[in-house]
Amino acid sequence: MGKLVYLYGIIPEGHDINELWDPEKSAIEGEDLPYVEDFGGLAAVVTKVSEDEFGETAMEENSNNTAWIQEKAFHHHEALLELQRHTTVLPMKFGTIFESVESLKQMIEEKEEHLQHTLQTLEGKEEWNVKAYINPKTFYERVAEANENVKAKREEIEQMSKGRQYLETKKLDKFIEEEMFKDQEKKAEEMYDRLAGYSEDSERKKNWKKDVTGREDEMALNSAFLVVSEDLESFLDQIREMEKEKEEDGWLIEATGPWPAYHFATMEE
């Protein structure tokens, strides 16, 4: 059966696999352990995988198998964490596979300039992910109490006739909810901008629904930042400060890292 080339990530040349890989760690599949393929200037950490398990058709099938994805995707991630401990690495997404070393070489040569540039950009930096959650009840109460538009609306209603007051008061709840979503998004955007100011690069991502988070709170911000390692403390200080400022309003902020720079290691220019 044919062998394919599984690419973990791209690193600067001149590294030996023994300094990058924990020998205790098993292979992604079978017995083939990873190795470094040098391409002059750049190097790739790769391993051989079988077409049986990682070929196009097999992958389609396996990607429906959650246990398989969980195992292999975690392996991929662990491998990159280990690489990251020893060198600057341009991490690939899970499942980046080439027909042969030759086709990998072709890709690297085509994109050499971009890959070199990206590696340089990533040097001395780390990716941190920040998620902010909002407790809808607490935040609703806050908005109902302190939001200027809600206050104005209430005053407006007070001036109305009894009949209209009744109708408008019934609608007030919906108005508060709308204001709440606006406020939530505004605050999330402020947080994101503030953190972006302390990072080299940033990306705002789609919020997860509750099915994915499994939480009572709503996710209001999902974002990734590329932070200069030396400046990490000031970046984290911002998060600590923001949390203190916003805790009473029902916000919770979570930062995780350092991750391999999955968000900032683009293959395309």
């Binding site: 991630h77 997404k93 899970f94 596979i97 391999p260």
Partner: peptide, 25 residues
Amino acid sequence: DSIVDVLELVLDKGVVIAGDIRVNI
């Protein structure tokens, strides 16, 4: 790292296109 976090990061919006083998996840 939760599994959900890792998956979000290592899967690329459902499609892997960086290699020359194209795989839909």
